[in-house]
Design a protein around this nucleic acid. Sequence first.
DNA 1: CTGTTAGCGCTTTCAA
DNA 2: TTGAAAGCGCTAACAG
Lengths: 350, 350
Amino acid sequence: MQKDLPELRLLTTPTAQLQVSGATLVDVARVAGVSPITVSRALNQPHLVRPNTLAKVQAAVQETGYAKNMQPGALASSRSKLVALVLPTISNQIFADMVQGTSDTLTEAGYQLLLGFSGYEEWREEILVETILSRRPDGIILTGTLHTDSTRRRLQQAGTPVVETWDMTASPIDTVIGFSHEEVGHATATHLLQRGRKRFAILTAGDPRAARRNQGLQVALAKQGISVMATHTAAVPGTLPAGREGAARLLDAHPDLDAIVCSSDNLAHGALIEAGSRGLDVPGKLAVMGFGDLNFSSHTVPPLSTVRVDGARIGAAAAQAILERLDGAAKAQPARSVNTGFELIQRGSS
Amino acid sequence: MQKDLPELRLLTTPTAQLQVSGATLVDVARVAGVSPITVSRALNQPHLVRPNTLAKVQAAVQETGYAKNMQPGALASSRSKLVALVLPTISNQIFADMVQGTSDTLTEAGYQLLLGFSGYEEWREEILVETILSRRPDGIILTGTLHTDSTRRRLQQAGTPVVETWDMTASPIDTVIGFSHEEVGHATATHLLQRGRKRFAILTAGDPRAARRNQGLQVALAKQGISVMATHTAAVPGTLPAGREGAARLLDAHPDLDAIVCSSDNLAHGALIEAGSRGLDVPGKLAVMGFGDLNFSSHTVPPLSTVRVDGARIGAAAAQAILERLDGAAKAQPARSVNTGFELIQRGSS
DNA sequence: CTGTTAGCGCTTTCAA
DNA sequence: TTGAAAGCGCTAACAG
């Protein structure tokens, strides 16, 4: 029994791609003998449709081979079900963890993730934000709180929910979720000083937040009259071999170091391997501190100590914040700050 | 001189979000004194517009504060400028590298990346593909060549360019870009056998492609009458501590092992650290092989040997393949297979 | 619970 | 080089 099925239309677009256009809502409606809006409801808010009608629609969907198309709906409703995430790079495990946390949360809520990279450059971020905005996402998650004025302005006037992550600030664009990097540096200093460390070196990647942690470390050390003996800066992202090489340089120049503070676990593992190859006792003679110690993608091993931050949690919380802003929009919620904190993981008896 | 600027319209959507709707093409056209389509051309194909007109449009854009909106254009032209990437997880460095390579290539071409995770589960992939398709991306990049029949069918009928990656197959959905995992296993066996290794263990994560590499390894070893002494399987993704623990178990059970073949560099680094803590000479007494050795996010250190695969290159090539299919669509290009190969990195004199 | 009407904001097509 | 008309496929708002 062949009802009036929509014929397969062959469309040749000007860019000359030959494509098969499938059935539309209208086609389904015709076959089901209802109106298009009823099909829309049956598909998206089935509880608003009588079971009987629902069944007819479902049958028609089968018969026509209808495939959902969110694009027109997004246009008509101004809800794209898309959330954008702007990262400096994915080549750092903490960001990989964050992506997973963000994506999982969004997927569960029926949203999808648009991903873009700024390469730690503000001007790139500015262009990227503009491009992203042109897609009208339902929310934007940014890394850090350092943006050009123009980016901030653009984001504010767009009226899209924005979450800044991995940091704290007194003047957020909208919502911030993260922790204080100065505090991390301070806590690291306290931790190592309490254990009698006196001869410090910093092994860091050229990342603005790492710089702030180092700053916090140095300020806290200075209060005890201690200054860092040497700093080695590696390119972003800090890799394991770069960590090994950096540690080698530091130890060559200062064989009596008793603490190397690294800006990432990758660098720290490199340092650990270098120390091992020199027969240095870690953490007996030399303490090595990392940063990260993630859930999904990487974990440190003893005898490394590290600062644990939960990238997946930050990502999930950021996504959650967007979602809440979206459905609670009427309540005009105020901007929020969420401090996710960090945790110092001590290993060995150093 | 206040021309008839569009007033800022306050829209209250049913979901009750208060948002400011900006100027549209029509607004710009009115201010510029031209037709909407001319504004569209001035913005997207400026070479088709007289410089004089162009200037008027640009001035009007300034004056109205017009912000580009791709959504209606995507609907009207069936070109979303969106490419989707489906990964099992991001918690594996090789995929992180791939994301970066894909994103960089797409961004340069004015496209953006939609990212989704299947968690190594076919049914998740199937749902994800359906959701992705409902957004009408211009292309889809998948991981591996193992998909449900229904996924394959759906993808084919959608008429969207598809690239399968990280593998080779005789029956691609469309295009494949990757290498043979059996060959990797074979090459690894040959390499180690040539260096006199006889007592093998496998340290692997439960990943289908890793399984195929192990398979290739074992087949090649069997030809020399050698069988693997033990296999330790860790959860995906293989982490450094898991590698260390797995190596410990293997070495406890078989102290005389002379080769541990790992399914990732993460696991291998863990094994290396364990070997170091036992005072085992690597690679003198024990060879440790990794897999990955990436460009962006991770590199192995000596004395680890490894199989190098270029995730960023695979990602970039996949994006490129989509783009080519898009603009050369008229030529109805045939499906292609690209073997990106791999490279065995030998370190130490083992 | 279901339908009617009127767009969402841009692009395509064809004509001038 | 520019414009007019006609959608793209779906949803909002309101009426029945």
